[in-house]
Amino acid sequence: MNRDKMSYKTSQFIMFAGPALLLFTGTVIVPLFYGLYLTFTSWDGISLSKPFVGLANYSAAFADTSYWQSLGKTFIYSFFSVIFINIVAFLLAYAVTSGIKGQNFFRAGFFIPNLIGGIVLGYVWQFVFNRAFTALGASIKGGTVPSLLSTESGAMFCLILVSVWQYAGYMMLIYVAGFMSVPEALKEAALIDGCTPGQALRKVILPLMRSSFVQCLFLSVTRCFVVYDVNLSLTNGEPYGSSELAAMHVYQTAFKHQQFGTGQAEALILFLICAVVGVTQVYVGKKGEVEA
């Protein structure tokens, strides 16, 4: 059999990679380019005609102040979420690798929020904020206490809190893997050379865990930027659209206001910003990586 023949190669490729190629093309490649085309049309979501409008959707997206406000809020939300997710995750990872009893039990426990979808989590927390915390507040202060979700800054705080709670356990697992990858011998050598445990952590362990930090930051940034499920079920943009983040705004523009072209243009802008932030952060992070 001649294995260099074009027909052999083609049949092999189609036999093994064909199904994956077909489905991948159908769900990612075709929609990606079709979406690009949609940004130059004004489609209403129902009719089959898609009138060409040139760059009108992009200028509409740039002129849409509520879109830029939602992007600004997404920045604020992502900034605080990412910082707190990583601080909490790192501290938890440090604690559950310190050799205490029940480490695996704790790891498994902190991971639980990740098992459940954002929609359900948002509703559970809505109950906590609207019913449980208000009842608790009322029993302490007396009278009625308004829910945190009813004010603009309160709703943002709740979104951040729930995101930290949701993702900290996942990022913790990555930091745990990072801690475990630092060779025991290096830690011991540092301690024998007279480092305090704090110094050993800062001077030896942390630099070796740099790739874990890069990875966790990348994952949390890219997730927070396009958060939708929790936003939808926890606040649904309330009060008065003040907690509407960018991904939700894209959805609303397209599916609620039937401006699919503008919505797609806004989605592309969101993607570009997200990609630039993510790639820059990985680039900066990787530059100073060291190996044991």
Binding site: K9, V30, L32, G35, T222, F225, Y228, F255, Q264, G278
Partner: peptide
């Protein structure tokens, strides 16, 4: 060549968030 291109495109596509694809998917 087909393998190399296919793999590279798949890797690159992993950064695309779902929001970019949802409107065209509904449309198509």
């Amino acid at each position: 060549k087909a393998c190399i291109i296919f793999f590279a495109v798949m890797i690159a596509s992993m950064v695309i968030p779902f929001q970019v694809l949802m409107i065209p998917i509904v449309s198509v």
